[in-house]
Nucleic acid binder design. Structure first.
Lengths: 208, 208
DNA sequence: TAGATTGTTAATCGATTAACAATC
DNA sequence: TAGATTGTTAATCGATTAACAATC
């Protein structure tokens, strides 16, 4: 039960969580079932039950899952019972948008540090956070014990910034730069590249 | 050979393409191998060769792949030999950042239409594109033959905007709203939710 | 030629699904 | 009780990898 859980399973848990939040907040739902949840997400009910069974027994035969309880269990599993300190590197248009994204605060993430190498950006305040000079990045992050970083810098800078972040103790990176990063095995990386995502879809579209 | 190709394979092609662009543009590389490409991407060379073999024989024994040639083949496969018209719905911070993202233009995507329901946003010009009123969305998109949309609206609006986009002829949606969308089977959807991505990583982090 | 690397096959590995006893 | 739904098992399905003949 506490064996090695496939990463693909871990990847679905936040999706379940998001749907459960919606059920509670938008629809005042008290209970749900693997069938209902699966229908919303386009996932089979068997898969949802299988995924959850890696971590324990959270439902009741005949009635399904208590939404609040399942939320709290998933939050526990995903280590969301604390507020994670997050550094945002890059204060361009995207960094600016991310700095103002209110869902981070609502979901256990506190973006409390911003960095940029452009002197024009340094000193600007974005959603209450002062943009600090790039050179102060390692010291500030190590000092504050920041372990998660969001990368919103150009591709050319991404790997060297990554190396410095990792050296300063960062263990998880959400990378918006269009480049594959090289990191030690104990550092997590997630990628977000809109061009890659669009290109994946055009394959299926009829060309003009 | 022209059989049904697994979507997971399609999903890797843009990643290969991105690395190949980098080899040509940043390193003036003329040829590469499945081994070299795999090493950069953290993917086995066998998998890269297998993926490519779905579409043809692009390499030469002993020497590997001609980078320019492989790029052009992948562009062809992914239907990137045309410029795709893209509509951007939502002119908030994120919409603003996406409107200014220069990589779309460089990679076969032209963001030529923006929409927002907020009268304060309507009429603003973002990177040369005038934000149009939400009500004009269907007619404008259908008229222009736009088939790809990027969704940067609040979760509460996302499904209804999606329904309208689909009715207007959109066949691919890149969704930044934190909600699972329901679409007909011939409509592609890709998701981008930073909170989901961060939550996937915190599972692996030691809590404080 | 010798070395390198492809494309492909077969084996392995892993993930999903169908089915159902258990039980609320 | 009857109906619903869980957790789990076994079967199925699909993806990855190892290995190698072919050949540049």
């Amino acid at each position: 039960m506490a064996d090695e859980i496939p990463d693909i399973v871990i990847g679905r848990l936040p999706i379940y969580l998001r749907a459960l939040y919606n059920m509670v907040e938008e629809e005042d739902k008290v209970t749900t079932s693997s069938h209902e949840l699966g229908e919303r997400l386009g996932i089979s009910s068997a898969q949802i039950r299988k995924d959850l069974s890696h971590f324990g027994e959270f439902g009741k035969q005949g009635t399904g899952y208590h939404v609040d309880f399942l939320i709290s269990q998933l939050e526990q599993i995903l280590n969301l019972e604390q507020v994670w300190r997050v550094a945002l590197v890059g204060a361009g248009f995207l960094g600016h948008a991310l700095a103002h994204y209110h869902r981070f605060q609502r979901h256990s993430f506190h973006i409390g540090w911003m960095f940029d190498s452009d002197p024009d950006k340094v000193g600007q305040v974005m959603n209450g956070v002062v943009v600090q000079p790039d050179e102060e990045m390692e010291a500030t992050i190590a000092e504050a014990g920041v372990r998660i970083a969001i990368l919103a810098v150009p591709a050319a800078a991404a790997q060297s910034v990554t190396d410095r972040l990792v050296a300063a103790g960062v263990k998880a990176i959400l990378n918006y730069a269009p480049i594959s990063l090289s990191v030690p095995p104990d550092v997590q990386v997630q990628y977000s590249d809109p061009v890659v995502q669009l290109q994946r879809m055009t394959y299926y579209l009829r060309p003009e």
